[in-house]
Design a binder for these strands. Structure first.
Lengths: 198, 198
DNA sequence: CGAATTAAGACAGCTTCATTGACTTAATGG
DNA sequence: CCATTAAGTCAATGAAGCTGTCTTAATTCG
């Protein structure tokens, strides 16, 4: 482990290393203490990911329960709403689940009139997905619930923090995922190829 | 919806609102456009949460597969390692799952010699949990795999970004979760009550 | 002391959401 | 025409959560 991977100065120590469990610092000079600090920072980041994701996801559960839907349905609604006219195969690539897993979820959403399937105009094998009026209404309710939380967090943290948040989140993703994230955002010139039915 | 919740200046437009699907801006004056921008920001944040969490979690799967363990085991190992000597009830509160769900996971970890249970010295009803040597070794491998990703993200983003990341992540959590996050971090004076067996 | 509470564990059954593998149908495209 | 692709389907399986009920042992409190 090379001893200078992060040259951050600001915000690194925020709070002492919480003297409790784990290897106690100060046994091998300042280098060891720094290593310990950095490890504690990374472990804290793991905690943050777990708790923040869990609580954000859970905040929409009450609405889902009303409809007898689960989180898998929420994710599908989210991405279909975000990319209206998306093909099934594209949705599969976004979610990274199998065709079977998605099929169950999608069948329920279509059966309840929340999602619409129309054959692709250019490629009629495709079934392009979009939200119905009802689907859009539900997705909006779910979104508003989570939005409250995120707006509050963004406001408390401030604009600079928001920018930092986004940079770190992007950095943690797979490179492949990062490419998928930009709907038409340029950067890579081969990104908007093969996207029929805008 | 009041029209000035976020007074962020930096990093708000980073990329145009991706002219594709959704309500097109510029139909109701500048106010509508700003509203649209903010909504797009919040939806992007949802994407970031989903993708970053998923990819970070998935990065440890290969190691788990070697051992025939799942992500639930990983989470348990993580928190037991982080709070050595934690009681079962405390672990339940951290994970927010039921006793049954944890029991299955814990039984496997103990059976494989990765986790140790010892009766609480003060309260002998408790079973205090800690990692065995083997358990610590496995947890470290899992941690290192995720650490690579996070260190890279932190380094690319920079120190200020890391601080912002942490603030936003904290803000998104439940208040209750935020309290649990600080192992002995003061701030709230009733935080370190009832924590037997340090 | 004795009763109520608490910590942990166990039994039985269920739900959600993912997996694999094999196969079909229809449309596309060289 | 034939290989490939998009989507859907059947069947079985696994991971990880849930409920409700119950027991045992230890603690706490009136």
């Amino acid at each position: 482990m090379d001893a200078r991977l992060m040259e951050q100065k600001a915000g690194v120590r925020e709070r002492g290393p919480a003297g409790g469990p784990g290897p106690t610092p100060g046994e091998g000079g300042a280098g060891t203490a720094l290593l310990f600090l950095r490890e504690e920072q990374m472990r804290l980041a793991q905690d943050l990911f777990f708790f923040a994701y869990r609580d954000l996801a859970a905040s929409a559960d009450a609405i889902l329960l009303e409809f007898g839907l689960g989180r898998a349905h929420h994710r599908a609604l989210h991405f279909i709403g975000r990319r209206s006219g998306i093909a099934v195969s594209e949705l599969l690539a976004l979610l990274r689940i199998t065709k079977q897993s998605l099929a169950r979820v999608l069948a329920e959403l279509v059966a309840r009139g929340l999602v619409l399937q129309v054959p692709g105009p250019r490629d009629r094998r495709q079934r392009l997905l979009s939200l119905t009026e009802e689907g859009r209404a539900l997705e909006r309710r779910l979104f508003e619930r989570q939005r409250e939380r995120m707006v509050a967090a963004y406001r408390e943290a401030g604009g600079a923090a928001v920018d930092g948040f986004r940079r770190v989140m992007r950095g943690v993703m797979d490179e492949q995922t990062r490419d998928l994230l930009e709907p038409r955002g340029a950067r890579s010139p081969a990104a908007d190829r093969g996207r029929a039915a805008g």
